[in-house]
C-alpha cells in the first residue's frame, strides 16, 4: 500500500499553448495541482476546457510550453526517453472509448499481458497466471482470455482496459472519461469496481470527467476547469455544498436531476464561446452574471484566493458564504 500522505505527482504553473491559423489557444493556462497518494483528484469541465491536455502532459505524452511536471519525484522534462518509458510502470491510463483503446485483433490475454511483455516481466506461464488474476480482480473470468474485443460488451471492454492498466502494478492511474461511454447500470458497476481496487491496491487516481455526479462519487478533491484554467478547487463538500465560483454553480445548476420536483435553475447567460485566449483577467466574464458588469473582472489580473486549507478559487467577486 502506498502511504496515505504526500503527493505522488504534481503540475506547477504548467502552460500548454497551441498555435494555429485562427490564433493561439491556451489549452492549459498556468495550472497547478498535485495528486495525493491513495486519493482521487477529479478534473471537471466542459469539452475544450483542457482536462485531457492536462492528462497528456502528466503522462508525458505531450510537452508543456512552460511549467514543471513531477511524477514520483522525477521531473518529466529532464527525463530521457528510456527513463520516461520506465516511469510508465508507475503511471497508466484508461481511456474513454471501450472499443477503440483495445486492439480488436488481439485476444484479451494478449491485450492484458502486453504491458508485462513491454517491461519484460515474468515468463509466458507466470504472465498467464497474472492475467487471470487481473481479470478476476476486475470481475471477468478465465473464460474471457481468448475473447476478442468485439465479443465483449462495452462494460467488459472497459474492465479489460482497467486490467491492462493494472498489469504493471502502477501507483497512479489516469482515468480519462473512463465511464462516459457506459450505460447507467454498467457505469455503476465499473465505478464501484474502481473504488474497490483503489483501496485494495492503494492507487492514486486522476479522474477526468464532464459528469459532476461521477466526480462527486469518485473524488476526494475536485478541480473545476474552464478554458485552460482551474477556476475552483476543493474537496467534495467545498465544491458541491459551498461553491464560490460562478462557473461552478452554473455547472451544478445545469445538471438535470432525476427528480421531477427538483428546482430548475438554468441561467440565461451569453453562450458565445471565444477561443481560450490568454488574458490575465477573467475569461469567464462574458458568461458570468456578476462579472459582465464589473470593471475589475475585465481589467484586473486574477489571483488565486485561498479560502481554506482545501478550498481555493479564481474570482474577483466570489459567491458569498457565511
Amino acid at each position: 500500500m502506498a502511504t496515505q500522505t504526500g503527493s505522488v505527482a504534481n503540475l506547477s504553473a504548467v502552460s500548454r499553448i497551441f498555435k494555429g491559423k485562427t490564433g493561439t489557444v491556451h489549452a492549459l493556462d498556468n495550472i497547478s495541482f498535485d495528486l495525493k497518494a491513495g486519493k482521487t483528484l477529479a478534473l471537471v469541465g466542459e469539452s475544450g476546457s483542457g482536462k485531457t491536455t492536462a492528462a497528456r502532459v502528466l503522462l508525458g505524452l505531450d510537452q508543456p510550453n512552460s511549467g514543471l511536471i513531477e511524477v514520483l519525484g522525477r521531473n518529466l522534462g529532464s527525463l530521457k526517453y528510456e527513463e520516461l518509458r520506465l516511469l510508465r510502470r508507475e503511471i497508466q491510463v484508461v481511456q474513454q472509448d471501450p472499443f477503440s483503446q483495445l486492439n480488436r485483433r488481439h485476444s484479451v490475454e494478449r491485450i492484458v499481458s502486453s504491458p508485462l511483455l513491454a517491461f519484460d516481466i515474468g515468463d509466458k506461464e507466470s504472465r498467464r497466471e497474472q492475467v487471470i488474476e487481473l481479470l478476476q480482480a476486475v470481475g471477468l473470468e478465465k473464460e474471457h482470455l481468448n475473447r476478442r474485443p468485439h465479443e465483449l460488451s462495452g462494460g467488459q471492454c472497459q474492465r479489460v482496459a482497467i486490467a491492462r492498466a493494472l498489469a504493471v502494478n502502477p501507483k497512479i492511474v489516469v482515468l480519462d472519461e473512463a465511464v462516459s461511454a457506459l450505460d447507467v447500470s454498467v457505469r455503476a458497476q465499473v465505478l464501484n469496481l474502481l473504488r474497490e481496487i483503489q483501496i485494495t491496491r492503494g492507487l492514486t487516481y486522476l479522474f477526468i470527467t464532464h459528469d459532476l455526479g461521477v466526480a462527486h462519487y469518485m473524488a476526494d478533491e475536485i478541480a473545476v476547469m474552464f478554458r485552460g484554467r482551474i477556476v475552483e478547487r476543493g474537496d467534495r463538500d467545498d465544491i458541491f455544498k459551498k461553491p464560490r465560483h460562478h462557473y461552478t454553480t452554473g455547472l451544478l445548476s445545469s445538471v438535470p436531476l432525476a427528480s421531477p420536483t427538483a428546482e430548475k435553475r438554468i441561467s440565461e447567460q451569453d453562450q458565445s464561446l471565444p477561443s481560450p485566449v490568454a488574458d490575465d483577467s477573467c475569461n469567464y466574464r462574458s458568461r458570468c452574471a456578476v462579472g459582465l458588469g464589473r470593471d475589475d473582472c475585465k481589467s484586473v489580473p486574477l489571483q488565486i484566493t485561498q479560502g481554506s486549507d482545501t478550498h481555493s478559487w479564481l474570482c474577483h467577486s466570489p459567491i458569498e458564504r457565511s
Binding site: V184, S185, A188, R195, D211, G213, H216, Y217, L252, L257
Partner: peptide, 14 residues
Amino acid sequence: RCDYTIDVTKPINS
C-alpha cells in the same frame, strides 16, 4: 444512477 445527490459512503446499487 450517479448524480451528485447520492450517498458517496456506500457503493452504488448497480
